[in-house]
Write a protein that binds this DNA or RNA. Structure first.
Length: 247
DNA sequence: AACTTTTGCAACCGCGAAAAA
DNA sequence: GTTTTTCGCGGTTGCAAAAGT
């Protein structure tokens, strides 16, 4: 069965909405409602696909949308709900009146996720920016923040993934695929020894296959070789302590 | 001052579920 | 029961603005 395209792409506007388009959409919905999103743009005289109209209305033009920065309470609620619900943004949004799933998803990815890794990081737009010298500090910074490893620690520390789950059990964790050592990219131009990264990656994989096989009390020397600063090592040791408590 | 990099967020895409024909 | 359409969701991208060099 061939799926029908969501809209006829030719001749339709894309990208940011103009104030005029917003006005047309708002006026039309106020007058006629939005019973059929696919038919709406034609009826309203908009050169947009229905999907785009729906998104614009739901995420921006609805009168009950709350604008402005998230409060500490809202951010805390998102963290709590994410622990419970995972990436079910619409379900999280249902508990935060006036906030959209898209907005919550953005806030999570831009602020909250990083704060879980680095709790000292300030909230919102005052968040400290990484200096270039810091960001290139160690290969493990990128390795930790951008790879599966970050998700591993986040899940683990939030107690979400601590159970008998493995990455192949996707029913209750964030993992969308099974990661193997081969899939973790290694940049040999980075600091540290690539073989150390491979050993660490292997250890992560081993954890998922058999958590009890990992000796969290004494991290392997590969970790020490990879961590280029005391802060990085402190982070690892904190994680180790928490895992010893869990197991 | 000019250029590069990073960040934040609006918008897009593809998929699955539900509803309608 | 099957096919088609529509909606809603979550992941991802693109770009303007801000920050850094």
């Amino acid at each position: 069965m061939v799926r029908a395209p969501c809209c006829e792409k030719t001749g339709l506007n894309r990208g940011p909405w103009t104030p005029e388009e917003d006005q047309i959409l708002v006026n039309h919905i106020h007058g006629f409602g939005h019973g059929n999103w696919r038919a709406l743009p034609k009826q309203a005289g908009l050169l947009r696909c229905g999907k785009s109209c729906r998104l614009r209305w739901m995420n921006y033009l609805r009168p009950d949308i709350k604008r402005g920065n998230f409060t500490e309470e809202e951010e805390e609620a998102i963290v709590q709900l994410h622990q419970k619900l995972g990436n079910r943004w619409s379900a999280i949004a249902a508990s935060l009146p006036g906030r959209t799933d898209n907005e919550i998803k953005n806030v999570w990815h831009t602020h909250l996720k990083r704060r879980l890794v680095d709790p000292t990081m300030e909230s919102g737009k005052q968040k400290k920016k990484k200096k270039k010298s810091e960001s290139s500090n160690a290969c493990t910074v990128d390795f930790l923040e951008e790879s599966e490893m970050e998700r591993f620690w986040l899940d683990a520390l939030s107690m979400n993934a601590i159970s008998t789950e493995t990455p192949t059990d996707q029913s209750n964790s964030d993992f969308s695929s099974t990661t193997t050592v081969a899939e973790i990219s290694i940049d040999p131009t980075d600091h540290g020894q690539p073989e150390d990264e491979l050993h660490v990656a292997a250890e992560i994989e081993r954890f998922w296959l058999d958590p009890s096989s990992i000796d969290f009390a004494s991290p392997s020397t590969h970790y020490y070789n990879l961590f280029n600063s005391d802060d990085d090592m402190d982070f690892w040791q904190d994680v180790s302590v928490q895992f010893q408590e869990i197991f």
